[in-house]
Simulated assay, not measured.
Amino acid sequence: MFIKEFIDYLLLERKYSVHTVTAYKTDLMSYVVFYEKEYDQKDISKSNYAQIRSWIVSLVDGGVSNRSINRKVSSLKAYYKFLLKTGQIDKTPLAKHQALKVSKKLQIPFSNIEVDKVLNGLVDGEDFKSVRDRLIVELFYATGMRRIELVNLKINNIDLLGKQVKVLGKRNKERYIPLLLSTVVTIKRYLELRTEVVVESKNPFLLLTEKGVKIYETLVYRIINRYFSEASSKVKKSPHILRHSFATHLLNEGANLNAVKELLGHSSLASTEVYTHQSVAQLAKVHKQSHPRNKK
């Protein structure tokens, strides 16, 4: 089936993260299970589009969202492209497949007031947990980094003197993001308290749990969700929305789209442009308030 070879290709040649590669493998195995059950075969490299289409239909019938189905099919498409590239097949069964339609969900960022409310609520806490949680909120809002990027931050990624942080993004691409002076102050205080939970441990990661081990993604999500639930009535309260807020607020203040793209670690402007709708809304507000014709 060449699945192992495909996984090695993603890890070693494409330099995808372990997290991303695991997602690819999970999607592929989902089809392998279906293929074996329905057609009594295991080698999906010999599958055809009609069989894949049956799998897609079964996913729809099972209540899987179009967005999730598209992701699974995208993983399968990448697998067949790999087989095509390595000469294992002469054509991909998904060559003419069209993705299912997905309704675009508007990601509503937190307002400046909501972010300030959360940070002001954390300013008085001087214990390890309070300072760590404040640092997590500050890092997301001050840098716009992804959740997995924050989790994987190491102490030596922080340059306090230069007021910047080195972030390892998708495909192991490095980028440097400036740090606010207030965030530098919080980092210094956190590092002082950090020695209380690690003692003799040589854990290189910046953010730790109260037990002195590396923080994990679900805990980061719970932290953001908990604090912003107290400050915001928005439906979605997650690290991604805080990253979204970082980008939107910069654009609202006149930041260059290309600059925001680099800060976010996007590979193309198309990914960054999703945030511009908020800037357009801000411009419309300014236009309405300032245009002389609107004053008549």
Score class of each variant (00 low, 15 high):
residue 2 F to Y: 13
residue 267 S to V: 14
residue 179 L to V: 00
residue 248 T to P: 06
residue 16 Y to A: 04
residue 172 N to G: 08
residue 119 L to I: 12
residue 149 E to L: 04
residue 133 D to I: 02
residue 97 H to A: 11
residue 136 I to P: 06
residue 199 V to K: 15
residue 222 R to F: 05
residue 166 K to E: 12
residue 186 T to F: 01
residue 240 H to F: 00
residue 203 N to C: 10
residue 228 F to L: 00
residue 122 L to D: 07
residue 207 L to P: 03
residue 247 A to R: 04
residue 133 D to C: 00
residue 172 N to I: 00
residue 253 E to M: 11
residue 281 A to E: 13
residue 104 K to Y: 07
residue 137 V to M: 14
residue 56 I to C: 04
residue 27 D to G: 02
residue 39 Y to N: 02
residue 177 I to V: 14
residue 110 F to L: 03
residue 153 L to G: 06
residue 126 E to L: 12
residue 210 E to T: 13
residue 92 T to E: 11
residue 122 L to H: 06
residue 188 K to W: 01
residue 19 H to A: 08
residue 226 R to P: 03
residue 41 Q to Y: 11
residue 238 S to C: 00
residue 223 I to Q: 02
residue 272 T to K: 07
residue 39 Y to V: 01
residue 214 K to H: 08
residue 121 G to W: 05
residue 157 N to G: 05
residue 158 I to N: 02
residue 46 K to C: 13
residue 87 G to Q: 10
residue 48 N to Q: 09
residue 153 L to P: 09
residue 102 V to W: 05
residue 182 S to I: 13
residue 261 K to L: 08
residue 279 S to E: 14
residue 255 A to R: 05
residue 7 I to G: 12
residue 81 K to Q: 15
residue 48 N to A: 12
residue 29 M to S: 12
residue 235 V to E: 15
residue 188 K to T: 07
residue 32 V to M: 03
residue 53 R to A: 11
residue 109 P to E: 06
residue 57 V to E: 10
residue 66 N to T: 08
residue 287 H to S: 13
residue 155 I to E: 15
residue 47 S to V: 04
residue 74 S to C: 09
residue 26 T to L: 13
residue 46 K to N: 14
residue 86 T to G: 03
residue 175 R to I: 04
residue 175 R to P: 07
residue 158 I to A: 04
residue 197 V to H: 07
residue 84 L to V: 10
residue 79 Y to T: 03
residue 39 Y to F: 15
residue 9 Y to M: 11
residue 66 N to C: 12
residue 54 S to E: 13
residue 172 N to V: 04
residue 289 Q to G: 14
residue 114 E to W: 01
residue 284 A to C: 13
residue 227 Y to A: 01
residue 56 I to M: 09
residue 244 H to M: 00
residue 93 P to T: 03
residue 87 G to T: 08
residue 280 V to F: 14
residue 50 A to E: 15
residue 1 M to R: 10
residue 79 Y to I: 06
residue 253 E to T: 12
residue 101 K to D: 13
residue 191 L to T: 06
residue 144 G to P: 09
residue 232 S to K: 00
residue 64 V to N: 04
residue 68 S to C: 05
residue 171 R to D: 07
residue 252 N to S: 08
residue 18 V to F: 13
residue 29 M to G: 04
residue 79 Y to D: 07
residue 288 K to V: 06
residue 88 Q to P: 10
residue 147 R to H: 09
residue 17 S to K: 06
